[in-house]
Amino acid sequence: MPRSLLRALVPLLLCALLAGTTAACGGDDKDSGATPTSTAERQKLAKTRFVANAGLAAGATYQWIVKPYRAGKFTAGADGRRFALVKAGLAGAFTYNRLKAALRNAKADPTLAKAVAPLTAGIDALKDLPSKLRKGDSTESVVKSFDGAINKVKDAGKGAGAEVRDRVPSAGELTKG
């Protein structure tokens, strides 16, 4: 396959994939297994799910948004710029989805709910940023918005006894949302 044709097809395929996955990003992270019976068990599972979802969001942000930005992959004329921007757009949609799930999880734990509640507006503001990343619009402000939201969620979790560590999602997890 000629390289020019491949360069034209990759962004189109990734955009089509993104369109399909963002439509399905409203998915819940409900467990299909046994349900906890006591309030303490529900709170423990909520905290665990919060840490998992926030960790995935943090890992995706660092791996596919912050790290490429720092490496200069988003600057005009950079080698692989278009592909880096498309991946960053996918990661942005994934991050937004996982942060929304983490907020839902936090609501089930009183300590986390108090710590994370002020972050809701900041996370909601991330909703339109993936499309800006894909277009290459003001990448510096977009990267700072994602990084800032992740750091605030990590700080809130740590303050509530739920330390969040970066966990880079697999490509499959990234496309599933």
Results as ranks from 00 to 15, higher is better:
99 L>T: 11
51 V>G: 09
171 A>K: 13
142 V>A: 14
3 R>W: 11
71 A>H: 11
41 E>Q: 14
65 I>S: 02
41 E>W: 02
114 K>P: 10
103 L>H: 09
26 G>A: 06
167 R>T: 15
53 N>F: 03
128 D>T: 13
60 A>Y: 08
126 L>K: 07
62 Y>C: 00
126 L>H: 12
25 C>A: 13
86 V>P: 00
70 R>L: 13
164 V>C: 02
149 A>L: 03
55 G>T: 00
25 C>L: 13
9 L>R: 13
71 A>Y: 10
160 A>P: 07
24 A>I: 09
167 R>F: 00
62 Y>R: 07
96 Y>A: 05
13 L>T: 09
173 E>M: 07
92 G>L: 05
2 P>S: 12
18 L>I: 13
110 P>M: 02
51 V>K: 04
30 K>F: 11
134 R>C: 05
61 T>C: 12
60 A>P: 01
77 G>V: 02
30 K>Y: 10
24 A>S: 13
136 G>K: 03
148 G>W: 12
92 G>W: 00
74 F>V: 10
176 K>Q: 11
61 T>G: 04
91 A>K: 03
58 A>G: 10
20 G>P: 06
101 A>I: 06
119 L>N: 04
8 A>P: 04
170 S>I: 03
64 W>C: 08
40 A>Q: 14
69 Y>N: 12
50 F>R: 03
149 A>V: 01
77 G>R: 07
135 K>A: 15
76 A>M: 01
99 L>E: 09
34 A>G: 06
125 A>H: 08
27 G>Q: 11
141 S>I: 05
155 D>L: 06
70 R>E: 14
108 A>C: 03
140 E>L: 06
36 P>Y: 07
16 A>T: 13
106 A>C: 03
104 R>E: 10
28 D>G: 15
74 F>D: 01
